[in-house]
């Protein structure tokens, strides 16, 4: 599904990704862990098409297409979804209005019929129920005044609604209490149907108790320096990132 080869990227002239390789097959969950500043968020944002990150080398293929040539909205239409680490607040736009606009934009791009208000509300209600969200979240302006946890849950609601082929979670678990963490995990697990894939970018192992990865990778200085199964995440939790840094300092 996703094939990243020798990806290099910089921001403000500073190299952040230094030859990253990763292959994600349909249905797989990959965890990407690493210390602060290792390039985790950059990687997530580059996949979603953020223009502040300049790709200077390497290739990214998504379902056989060159992802790097696509605009952010084209990536969304193709099935990529990034759950933001810091979702932006947009006062003046109702959350529900935005959700429908996004869903209908994607449906339209995929040649599907756009949903009218009633049909849309029916779909939205199902997702809200699934994620055990409170409906006041829907009535408020997009992310405005949301707590950190509410913002993350709202990201997961968007994900559940847009049903991406590849969901990328950028530290969605940071700062969440255990209940919110379970909601996030439920949302992701509900999406898993054997064909959809997930990249979980995280600093902590805790989320991986609930979203069990098929593969775990350690990102350090813009490269994947170690890969393994779900047990690698536990090992990192126990030993910290120090031992990775030590083994690469030499």
């Amino acid at each position: 599904m996703l094939k990243v080869s020798n990806l290099q990227a910089r921001v403000d002239g500073k190299m952040i990704l230094n030859g990253l390789d990763l292959e994600v097959k349909a249905g797989e969950v990959h965890a990407i862990m690493g210390p602060n500043g290792s390039g985790k968020s950059t990687f997530a944002n580059v996949l979603a098409g953020h223009e502040a990150f300049e790709v200077t080398g390497g290739t990214v293929e998504f379902e056989g297409k060159n992802l790097l040539e696509m605009e952010p909205e084209e990536r969304a239409w193709a099935g990529i979804f990034l759950a933001f680490q810091y979702p932006v607040e947009i006062p003046g736009v109702g959350n529900t209005y935005f959700l429908r606009m996004a869903l209908n934009a994607i449906r339209k791009a995929r040649g599907q019929e756009e949903l009218d208000s009633v049909a849309f509300m029916k779909v939205l209600r199902e997702k809200v129920k699934l994620l055990k969200l409170r409906d006041d979240l829907l009535k408020r302006p997009l992310n405005e005044g949301f707590s950190g946890g509410e913002k993350k849950r709202n990201e997961i609601l968007q994900m559940a609604l847009l049903e991406p082929k590849l969901a990328i979670l950028d530290e969605t678990d940071s700062g969440l209490d255990i209940d919110a963490l379970k909601i996030v995990a439920d949302g992701v697990n509900a999406l898993r149907d054997g064909t959809r894939s997930v990249i979980v970018v995280t600093h902590y192992q805790r989320l991986l108790d609930y979203i069990v990865p098929d593969h775990t990778h350690v990102l350090y200085k813009g490269k994947i320096v170690k890969s393994g199964g779900k047990e690698l995440a536990l090992e990192l939790e126990e030993k910290g990132y120090g031992w990775i840094q030590e083994s690469h300092a030499a």
Binding site: A48, G49, H50, E51, A52, E71, P72, E73, R75, A76, W77, F81, L82, F84, P87, V88, I90, F98, M101, A102, L103, A105, I106, A109, Q158, L162
Partner: peptide, 19 residues
């Protein structure tokens, strides 16, 4: 317009003009 907000809306599939 705020670039971060533009990227956020576009990453959800909203075309640039509509965003």
């Amino acid at each position: 317009l705020d670039e971060k907000s533009m990227f956020y809306a576009r990453s959800r599939g909203v075309p640039e003009d509509a965003a």
